[in-house]
């Protein structure tokens, strides 16, 4: 809407860095790392209970214990991240296992994936959004083990989509032949969530 509308007396604060940096529409820069979660932070004992699994439409489910997971080849990732609540953070540094590594040798005809997490959170994506060097399961942030409130021990990292897709406390990926909405996707948030196309909510 708003053809010609402007807010009387509003100038805005354009930080120097924002002038030289391209941000997705409607986003603003933050220096800190805000925490947003819908419920209490889960704490699963790593040695005894934690595992990561690939299940669903696959030839054979895969499962890694914490020890096995840490032994997988890892990558360092530096990316900008964009939260649907409007903040963006530039050049965040992560370390984790590429989803490509986790799916190596998996036979599947699935086209969609549902990430599932401790606490019951889920988020859905087309499989092609998490393969080809676009997604990781990260266990370190800025050189330190990922803190529980930011999703530790591991969180999904899909930086090219809004950050709710980068599910905290992720425990596995369920491969699916059909798409189904995850937690926020059922509650009014966009099914795909591309920040550059400002896909925040249903119908965007």
């Amino acid at each position: 809407m708003s053809g010609g509308f402007f807010s009387r007396g509003f100038r805005g604060r354009r930080r120097p860095v924002e002038q030289g940096t391209q941000l997705p529409p409607g986003q603003y820069l933050v220096e800190g790392f805000p925490v947003l979660s819908a419920g209490p932070t889960p704490r699963t004992p790593l040695e005894e209970e934690w595992d990561f699994s690939i299940i669903g439409e696959v030839d054979e489910p895969r499962r890694w214990t914490w020890k096995e997971f840490q032994a997988l080849p890892s990558e360092e990732i530096t990316r900008d991240i964009h939260c649907v609540t409007k903040w963006s953070k530039l050049g965040t540094r992560w370390e984790g296992v590429s989803v490509d590594t986790l799916l190596e040798g998996v036979e599947t005809a699935a086209e969609f994936v549902m990430a599932f997490c401790d606490g019951g959170y889920t988020t859905n994506m087309p499989l092609e959004e998490v393969i080809g060097g676009k997604a990781w399961v990260a266990y370190a942030y800025e050189g330190e083990p990922l803190e529980p409130e930011h999703g530790g021990p591991v969180r999904l990292l899909v930086p090219h989509l809004y950050f709710w897709k980068s599910a905290k406390w992720v425990r596995g990926l369920r491969l699916l032949n059909h798409d189904e909405p995850g937690f926020w996707e059922s509650l009014g948030y966009h099914n795909h969530g591309d920040p550059w196309r400002e896909q925040r909510y249903w119908g965007d």
Binding site: P34, V35, L36, S37, A38, G39, P40, P42, C83, V84, T85, W87, C117, D118, G119, G120, Y121, T123, G151, R155, L156, Y162, F163, W164, K165, S166, A167, K168, W169, F183, W184, Y189
Partner: peptide
Amino acid sequence: PGVSSATGGT
């Protein structure tokens, strides 16, 4: 509302 990558609740 919590969304940066939320969680919790099913």
